Lab assay of single mutants.
Amino acid sequence: QVALSRTQVCGILREELFQGDAFHQSDTHIFIIMGASGDLAKKKIYPTIWWLFRDGLLPENTFIVGYARSRLTVADIRKQSEPFFKATPEEKLKLEDFFARNSYVAGQYDDAASYQRLNSHMNALHLGSQANRLFYLALPPTVYEAVTKNIHESCMSQIGWNRIIVEKPFGRDLQSSDRLSNHISSLFREDQIYRIDHYLGKEMVQNLMVLRFANRIFGPIWNRDNIACVILTFKEPFGTEGRGGYFDEFGIIRDVMQNHLLQMLCLVAMEKPASTNSDDVRDEKVKVLKCISEVQANNVVLGQYVGNPDGEGEATKGYLDDPTVPRGSTTATFAAVVLYVENERWDGVPFILRCGKALNERKAEVRLQFHDVAGDIFHQQCKRNELVIRVQPNEAVYTKMMTKKPGMFFNPEESELDLTYGNRYKNVKLPDAYERLILDVFCGSQMHFVRSDELREAWRIFTPLLHQIELEKPKPIPYIYGSRGPTEADELMKRVGFQYEGTYKWVNPHKL
């Protein structure tokens, strides 16, 4: 086992960053958080920038500027975001240094004079007029057009580079997404736009490419001749908990499936790229999406959770019991969808996408189930092999396979070949997804960000279904809070070829 401390991990990262040409360590950078008073800024962006600063992973002359409508001070920003920093008493001095680099400007999102004030403020910072500028839009999409237009007109660096990070949702359907994309691309070049999907920053999602293309053993079996089906799962054990009003506007397909799960599907299904260059990788992902037809209604199961009468606390409440959810809402909190990649490698292999709230566990994984062994000599005792990439929690890679049961006879039983990170790298604290992705933006690497043509294809696949749901308002199937979801989803999976045995229990190697 390799035991690495946080300091050692960050030392390795620093070495990698400083050796590259793309990370300008000594240049002045300004990180501007648009929507600095909001939840995302408070819980994710400010803490992430602090962790990067604490670990010495930001360029040395980096300033952080918050911008929002609320009249706040840096002290206010500190008060609301610091509880999420997880700072230790030993880091007190470092924390003071961090907040000394912070400033805040209040202004409207659609007022040109406010942006001119913001620009004057940035120019007044040390070497601010020639600094590289990175704008993070932690804002609702309704203000994107006004904000990007004003940034472009008043706040661009004339000497350094300018980059803009856009948070999902990128529209509600193909038409609104196209409108937003066309607007942003009329102001910024594609190499300046970073559409963030934080799932692409997760260690195991990034590991998929290495697993596939750096190991000879997987190449020959990664196709329709050997793989019976692919299941991509995202499960949350909690409901909307008072935030249903926002969720109800989008629903589970827009929230998770059309982005996170579809991105994971691309990494499983794509061909080997010409290189690890950002556009070479994204070219292959677009090719996969172009091979997927629009979702067919007979390959869809929609569910909505109801309270568990035997549960406790939140578990007793259904989705419609959330006071922020519109009365009688038919918005799905669970969806199972089957897609097919219609190309030579994957023809006929079902890709089953499942996601839901208020389920029995927290889990995100990719599961490849292989065909049955031909010419069975073990009297149907063999179960199908599976390769599982567990994204969260407890990152893991393992192969479910058959071995001989101890004893006199040739009785096979299920076991696993474990390729888990935790076994080799004991207690290594890896940077989280937002840390990686923000560092990628500083480096100018777009590999783990969504390109406009990729986004367009993703919406093309799901828009007809979303429009049909909005028009017909089908009643989702009720499922109990804390269950596996509607049984109809299991029946759909069985119908397209997935075999669920229920006889195997994964042993978490992190707890051995």
Rank of each mutant, 00 (worst) to 15 (best):
residue 255 D to W: 01
residue 257 M to A: 12
residue 259 N to T: 04
residue 261 L to M: 11
residue 262 L to S: 09
residue 264 M to T: 08
residue 265 L to K: 02
residue 266 C to M: 07
residue 267 L to R: 01
residue 267 L to E: 02
residue 268 V to L: 13
residue 271 E to F: 00
residue 273 P to G: 00
residue 279 D to I: 13
residue 280 D to P: 10
residue 284 E to Q: 11
residue 285 K to F: 01
residue 285 K to I: 04
residue 285 K to H: 00
residue 287 K to G: 10
residue 290 K to P: 03
residue 294 E to N: 13
residue 294 E to I: 11
residue 294 E to P: 12
residue 295 V to R: 07
residue 296 Q to K: 15
residue 298 N to V: 14
residue 298 N to W: 07
residue 299 N to F: 09
residue 304 Q to P: 01
residue 304 Q to E: 00
residue 305 Y to Q: 01
residue 305 Y to F: 12
residue 307 G to K: 15
residue 308 N to T: 10
residue 309 P to A: 14
residue 312 E to L: 14
residue 313 G to Q: 08
residue 314 E to D: 14
residue 316 T to L: 10
residue 320 L to N: 08
residue 321 D to Y: 05
residue 325 V to F: 03
residue 325 V to G: 04
residue 326 P to E: 08
residue 330 T to A: 11
residue 331 T to N: 12
residue 332 A to I: 02
residue 334 F to Y: 12
residue 337 V to S: 13
residue 340 Y to T: 13
residue 340 Y to K: 13
residue 341 V to E: 00
residue 341 V to T: 04
residue 344 E to A: 11
residue 346 W to A: 04
residue 347 D to M: 10
residue 347 D to K: 15
residue 348 G to N: 09
residue 348 G to F: 05
residue 348 G to P: 01
residue 349 V to H: 01
residue 351 F to K: 00
residue 351 F to L: 05
residue 356 G to W: 03
residue 357 K to M: 01
residue 357 K to Y: 02
residue 358 A to D: 03
residue 359 L to R: 01
residue 363 K to H: 03
residue 364 A to S: 12
residue 366 V to Q: 01
residue 368 L to V: 15
residue 370 F to C: 06
residue 371 H to L: 10
residue 371 H to I: 08
residue 373 V to S: 08
residue 375 G to W: 09
residue 382 C to P: 15
residue 382 C to F: 10
residue 386 E to W: 04
residue 387 L to S: 02
residue 387 L to N: 03
residue 389 I to C: 12
residue 392 Q to K: 03
residue 397 V to W: 07
residue 398 Y to H: 02
residue 399 T to I: 11
residue 399 T to Q: 08
residue 406 P to A: 11
residue 407 G to A: 09
residue 407 G to S: 00
residue 411 N to V: 10
residue 412 P to V: 09
residue 413 E to V: 13
residue 413 E to M: 11
residue 413 E to C: 11
residue 413 E to K: 12
residue 414 E to M: 15
residue 416 E to V: 04
residue 423 N to M: 11
residue 424 R to P: 04
residue 426 K to I: 08
residue 429 K to F: 10
residue 430 L to Q: 09
residue 431 P to T: 09
residue 434 Y to E: 01
residue 436 R to E: 01
residue 444 G to E: 08
residue 449 F to G: 05
residue 452 S to W: 07
residue 458 A to C: 08
residue 459 W to F: 03
residue 463 T to G: 05
residue 464 P to K: 10
residue 467 H to F: 12
residue 468 Q to W: 12
residue 470 E to N: 14
residue 472 E to N: 12
residue 473 K to S: 12
residue 475 K to Y: 11
residue 475 K to I: 14
residue 477 I to K: 15
residue 477 I to R: 14
residue 480 I to V: 15
residue 481 Y to C: 11
residue 481 Y to H: 11
residue 484 R to N: 01
residue 484 R to T: 01
residue 485 G to A: 07
residue 487 T to R: 13
residue 488 E to M: 13
residue 492 L to R: 01
residue 493 M to I: 15
residue 494 K to H: 14
residue 496 V to F: 12
residue 499 Q to P: 04
residue 501 E to D: 14
residue 502 G to E: 14
residue 503 T to P: 07
